[in-house]
Design a protein around this nucleic acid. Structure first.
Lengths: 234, 234
DNA sequence: CGTAGAGTTGACGGGAATCAAAAGTAGTGG
DNA sequence: CCACTACTTTTGATTCCCGTCAACTCTACG
């Protein structure tokens, strides 16, 4: 039993598997596979909010699993416009890529703790371990599906639909309560949805006026009319 | 040597490998793997333009390789809004998915010919064939990367940038000539870029007025100022 | 030649971006 | 504890890019 295993177990026990959302199955399969067959690089890393974990173009020789906190992966245009591809939470794997370089950059959204794995190690093991290679494949396919769903949102949904979709998606990451706690700023939400902070803010205010949500604080959102929200989620 | 192999070879020989674009490496690796290890289901299929190959939710027990023609894979919102995820050309694999159901639908853009493979067969083989399973993984990762790039375009680029990006992307699919032939309608382009047909049309007209392209016909586009176009491709 | 679908162009309006400023929140140090 | 600062968020005013609606042109095809 390695240190990583112990850490992983305790981290996993802190969260209800039923509420992790649709990615939980594949993610946890993969995670379990890594735990069974791998040792970590020996380092458990901490990152303060907004710290870069890796940048676009960096060597992709390690990948990460989140112990606690939230991480965003994103791409940039030359003039600084940013698109956040995904928010990753406790238990998620991120940064595993086929090429030599990271195609996205990863940054800590909140204070967070991650474990790093050596990619080479996993690949060597996957060659002989069928279960692990299936999990890797599953991980890749799942992320592909996620990116495709996100394309539909970005290309074809209105601002309200985008914000509602985000709220519903994020609600699955939180304990099964009516109130969700957002780890990210309005800027993060905007860059995830292809909007501006002002539009995100206005849309949330409008949803509150329409009695669908309640903004206890800017980061604490309570669902007042889940049915109506789901109806807006085309 | 199976029939499928012969067909694939002749199809592959009809195209210059150097001009297929960035996906060629992984796609052809995967294709080669399938050819070496698989027989087809016995059917080479033809589809007329706009014919559905499979729909969202259909059983994903077969996947396809394109012999000739162009295929689009897309998702729909309940009210009919459509987002095209990708256009697939000769040699491309599409429809390989991890779940029991297709998450996207696939339709013929032009008259096209495809070969169908049994997914079960590939999966069984991948278990024992390390090379094949690596190719499957590579295929999945590559599609993931493509979808992520597309998200940046959809979420953060202007209409002109989108259209230019499309032209440059599509130019890689055609022989290395200044003129490219589009297989798809303006509606297809619009649904790929998250725009309307009018905006696509207007943008192309503007690019022509700016002497960057020339519309020989609506579907034949000549690059007059490639450098300027690439400059617009943020 | 006539019809139907694809594409272009124009007029107009609206939804989201931009510009600008106020209000809320958090952290710091006296 | 409270002023002081910096940042995040909200709200308002205005702009503008792109969508919508509509008419016209072009091409393909029987």
């Amino acid at each position: 039993m390695s240190t990583s295993l112990a850490i992983s177990r305790s981290a996993a026990s802190a969260v209800d598997p039923a509420v992790i959302g649709r990615s939980s199955k594949h993610q946890s399969d993969f995670k379990a596979g890594c735990e069974r067959t791998l040792s970590t690089t020996g380092s458990v890393l901490h990152f303060a909010p907004d710290r870069e974990i890796y940048g676009e173009g960096d060597d992709a020789d390690t990948f990460f699993k989140i112990v606690s906190g939230v991480v965003r992966t994103c791409k940039f245009l030359s003039d600084g416009r940013r698109q956040i591809e995904a928010f990753h939470v406790e238990g998620d794997i991120f940064g595993f890529e086929p090429g030599a370089e990271h195609r996205l950059s990863a940054e800590a959204v909140s204070e967070c703790t991650v474990i790093s794995y050596r990619r080479r190690g996993v690949e060597r093991l996957a060659a002989s371990n069928e279960a692990l290679s299936q999990q890797l494949f599953s991980y890749a396919m799942h992320n592909m599906a996620r990116a495709q769903d996100h394309s539909l949102l970005l290309g074809r949904k209105s601002a309200v639909e985008k914000v509602v979709a985000f709220l519903i998606e994020w609600a699955d990451h939180a304990p099964r309560s009516a109130t969700i706690a957002l780890a990210m700023t309005r800027q993060d939400i905007a860059d995830y949805l292809g909007l501006t902070i002002e539009t995100v803010s206005r849309t949330l205010s409008q949803l509150e006026r329409d009695a669908m949500i309640e903004l206890s604080t800017a980061r604490q959102i309570r669902f007042r009319d889940p049915a109506a929200l789901r109806a807006l989620n085309a």
